[in-house]
């Protein structure tokens, strides 16, 4: 564990806590894409199957359990909670997320480290995570006016990805034989998707005004 990976994990944890806080206390999920949240739940469900087969550390196991629990809790809130579900922008959140799942799965069947059940699902989760933010970004672009919590949520998700890139660079130079092409490339794609959002986020922060995205 190095400082970049810890900072990345903490940003990830913090982003989810922000989202849960918003949903739980304000009882609103306005501006949050259910499609993206469902994709994340699928990402964690397929990636963390190794929770049953291997042990790395208590930290690792607890984080995995948190990510699994929180992603399904958020989906549950948005779909079934009496108050929260009414604030969901269903008509705006129209990205066809099913179209992301199949290509990612086919790609995982073709490009992977090892052709085993867990390994293919793990690879699928990496590809899917890379594009899972797309419905959220499309929703932000559509609604344009982004409330603070949703903006911070996406910002910290992007920070998590950026720290992971620094972590890979650090590990590449400090560990022997550490190279993970699949993880790196899908991670880079994922981080690149945030670039546009980051630009407007930092701009609004510097002008200390509300985040507004161009149409």
């Amino acid at each position: 564990m190095n400082i970049f990976r810890l900072a990345g994990d903490m940003s990830h944890l913090f982003s989810i806590l922000l989202l849960l806080l918003k949903i739980h206390t304000i009882k609103s999920c306005a501006g949050v894409s259910l499609k993206t949240q469902e994709l994340y739940a699928l990402v964690f469900a397929t990636r963390y199957l190794d929770i049953f087969t291997g042990y790395i550390s208590l930290y690792n196991t607890l984080m995995k359990m948190f990510f699994l629990w929180s992603s399904f809790t958020i989906v549950w809130y948005m779909r079934y909670h009496n108050v929260v579900r009414r604030s969901y922008d269903k008509d705006q959140d129209t990205f066809r997320h099913y179209f992301l799942i199949l290509p990612c799965f086919i790609l995982a069947l073709l490009v992977h480290e090892k052709f085993t059940f867990l390994e293919v699902l793990w690879t699928f989760s990496l590809y899917l995570e890379a594009v899972a933010i797309l419905p959220q970004l499309v929703l932000l672009q559509r609604t344009r006016n982004v409330d603070n919590l949703t903006g911070h949520y996406v910002f910290f998700l992007g920070a998590y990805r950026s720290f992971y890139i620094l972590n890979w660079i650090y590990r590449y130079f400090t560990e022997q034989n550490y190279y993970k092409w699949i993880t790196w490339i899908s991670g880079l794609v994922q981080t690149a998707l945030y670039a546009d959002f980051f630009y407007y986020y930092v701009k609004s922060w510097r002008n200390s005004e509300r985040l507004q995205l161009p149409a």
Partner: peptide
């Protein structure tokens, strides 16, 4: 140390 087939990142 990264063992083959073990993913230690989250």
């Amino acid at each position: 140390i990264d063992v083959e087939g073990v993913h230690d990142e989250l």
